[in-house]
Design a protein around this nucleic acid. Sequence first.
DNA 1: TCTGGGGTCCTAGGACCC
DNA 2: TCTGGGGTCCTAGGACCC
Length: 414
Amino acid sequence: VLVDCNNFYVSCERVFQPRLENKPTVVLSNNDGCVIARSAEAKKLGIPMGAPFFKWKAFCLEHDVHVFSSNYELYGDLSARVMESLRQFCANVEVYSIDESFLWFENWDMNDLITHLWDMRNFIKKSLGIPVSVGIGPTKTLAKIANQLAKQGSHVVNLNDPKSQEESLANFPVEKIWGIGHRLAAKLQAMGIHSALQLRDADLKRMRLHFTVTVERTVRELRGISCIPIEAIQPRKQIISSRSFGRTVTELTDLEEAVSHYAAIACEKLRKQHCVTSGIYVFIQTSAFKNVKQQYANGMVFSFPFPTDDTSFIITWAKKCLQHIYRKGYRYNKTGVMLMELAPNTHHQYDMLQPKSSKRAALMQVMDAINHSFGRATIYYCAEGVHRNWKLSCAHRSLCATTQWNELVKVTCF
DNA sequence: TCTGGGGTCCTAGGACCC
DNA sequence: TCTGGGGTCCTAGGACCC
């Protein structure tokens, strides 16, 4: 079973602002760049997914579209609550993204299961205010398709029955199948395969010859043969922290602050999943949308002599990488840091020449604990900058109503 | 003026080994 | 004249997902 929250970010904003119900509403990406979530009303107005906001600003004003900057603190917290609710209805839950989970049910009577899932859907709507759609199928790919059909209004769709399955797949375009992106879709269409049914019935050997094993798996999944198992949550294999700047940046000192800041964020995530890293990748780039002549993009990898999760150590090396790739005279719009080759911190490989420092580990623990109790960035490294005039813009951010004491919703009784 | 930020998996080809 | 056969590891790039 695939459970997916409807227009998740918009639904999150509506939880604490009921006046947005039935009103066209959109949520923007970081830096207020693109439209990344749209209410049904906004979709109806024709605002496309991923639309650059500056091109649609006037349109939104004209049509009274409510616009929000991303508030990931709120979305993350509500997501955790939705997932917790799902676990009350199913013992085997795989969280697949911030707004969807796969649920595994075995040996259920189908009518009982459908009743159970309706109860679950109603419970989440009533207790959290988030509407979800539910798709049922014998494989993940079919459950995904069922879920998309459920989004059209029926809320819960079952694709286990072979007869209804055939009809649904015949009307389901190949480019909307999970795992078929626009490039594969174009190739498949050129071969005369336009519907999910046609892909299901395509010759396996021919598919394997023209594509890779991933397409072969998708074909088998459409046939009801499970190839993608439900998995427990895996620790990340890499961690990236990067942002576009609120304005173009030219000076090395500003870039150093930003790189230090993103390194610190990445390290926090690293320690949260109890891992150490053996190398970093630092990159800078100018905007690809600007004058072609003045483009510059570069990155640099540095391998540590031993795995670490020490923020100050990693900041030091991130800055050295940056100094190496920085070129004066360019207008940079983005930088970022990637932590690679992650391993569990229990398998720490010590270095004979590197004195083992429990003091540093204790310092990291205290920093994380303080920031966890008193809010993000209560303490931080000076290297991250204080004024941060490079930081991203977010002009329409809503309140963190579930995670910040000073942003709680106020209720007034008349 | 203005266009996001994360992730994963697969394959071909190069470099190297015996 | 004439130069094998079997492996592994790593990386870049391409494809996909949300």
